[in-house]
Write a protein that binds this DNA or RNA. Sequence first.
DNA 1: TTTGCATGAATTGTATACGAATACTTACTC
DNA 2: GAGTAAGTATTCGTATACAATTCATGCAAA
Lengths: 227, 227
Amino acid sequence: MSTGEKIALKDLCDSIRMEIVSRNFPPGMKLSEQILCSRWNVSRTPIREALRHLESEGFISSSKHKGFVVTSISMHDVEQIYTIMINLDSLAARLATPFIARDAKKLERLRALCEEMQGLCGMKDIEGYMRKNLEFHSIIFRASENRWIIKILENLHSHTNRFILKALYIPRRMDESVQEHFEVLRCIEKGDERGVEKAIAVHFSRSLGDLKNEIELSAPLRTKEMD
Amino acid sequence: MSTGEKIALKDLCDSIRMEIVSRNFPPGMKLSEQILCSRWNVSRTPIREALRHLESEGFISSSKHKGFVVTSISMHDVEQIYTIMINLDSLAARLATPFIARDAKKLERLRALCEEMQGLCGMKDIEGYMRKNLEFHSIIFRASENRWIIKILENLHSHTNRFILKALYIPRRMDESVQEHFEVLRCIEKGDERGVEKAIAVHFSRSLGDLKNEIELSAPLRTKEMD
DNA sequence: TTTGCATGAATTGTATACGAATACTTACTC
DNA sequence: GAGTAAGTATTCGTATACAATTCATGCAAA
């Protein structure tokens, strides 16, 4: 790969972030500058600039003379993040409702996603489900037209996606979750801003609750800290 | 200045950020790397890394081959940010309440700040007032013990402080504001989490409302976009 | 005067070079 | 064999060098 034109800094940043979010670069992994250089065929300067960017986004941490390391994300972090998302995603959804309600394309896409999630849920395709789920919520918060919220939520959702574990399959929860998405969609279609706000808050609260239960149950497997 | 030991990257970053927040580096200002280099006696490499960090925090923007520019912050941005703070600061305050309620030192400091604000308000010292105000709210949200909220709010408060204009003196609003701070403090002392949450939300809502009015009134002076 | 272009100066983007700190290897002692 | 110390190798932090692009200036022509 990459034997031709030069990669832009932003793309470099996105590439590395993707590796981290996909757990291809797992928590705790040392990010050697040299290896990254040869991986993307650039010198250390742009690599370090990209790493500084990701550092400020919280995906990696650095210590002097020891270099960069992928941060780990614990259940404790996930709880803290969900606590924020319960509030912010619902706020964003409320703001977004009037914009989406009169946007046939977005409504159609949201409905398609709901149905696709229902299908994937039946097929037990967690990975696919998570992708659709992320797109569903992204469409909503991006429609809030509040660039500050959008930036924050993009970051937070990326971080939760680092934790969410393909392995963790909870059939009951997934069915519930699908229904909650449909409920959100119904409220949006009605233009019921407060209804959407509430539905999203409930959705994230339940997701967090079930996540905590599940982790609790699988505690012998892995404890509080993931990696 | 700076004729001795080498400055740490983090401090460099903080220094530049301070220049921006204090409007010493005003919105739209071109940040020439050379000038920054000679200002802090370092080479371009650490300067650029610091700038990348600040870019991801939203204080500057860059475009290829044109370099870095201090971002401008408009009333529209401030409205968007306040919309978030109304929710997030109140959430943080609710979380923080039980921790502060049993922390005599913090309670004492908060009370002192309230009284100092009252004094500064009488003396019409807006700059001093703003500083105390920021410390008051920072103590609260930092006590939330949610590191994700803390990071977000530190960033948002910094940005609003770029906008808030020393020139804008609103006696009535400042008196009101002082009372609202006392109300927040009373709720914290009682350990009334929901009361704190509500009080903070009301406080930020009113601040935003008055800010909008004031901007509206002084519209001939400066319109929507500040700088 | 204004428009257009050409040339050079200045600035940025990236690569490389070098000093400093850390990690690793090896060899030696016990 | 375990532990340790010295010396080597690697990696990082920063400075500098070079390439690519933009910006400014000046001059010529309309």
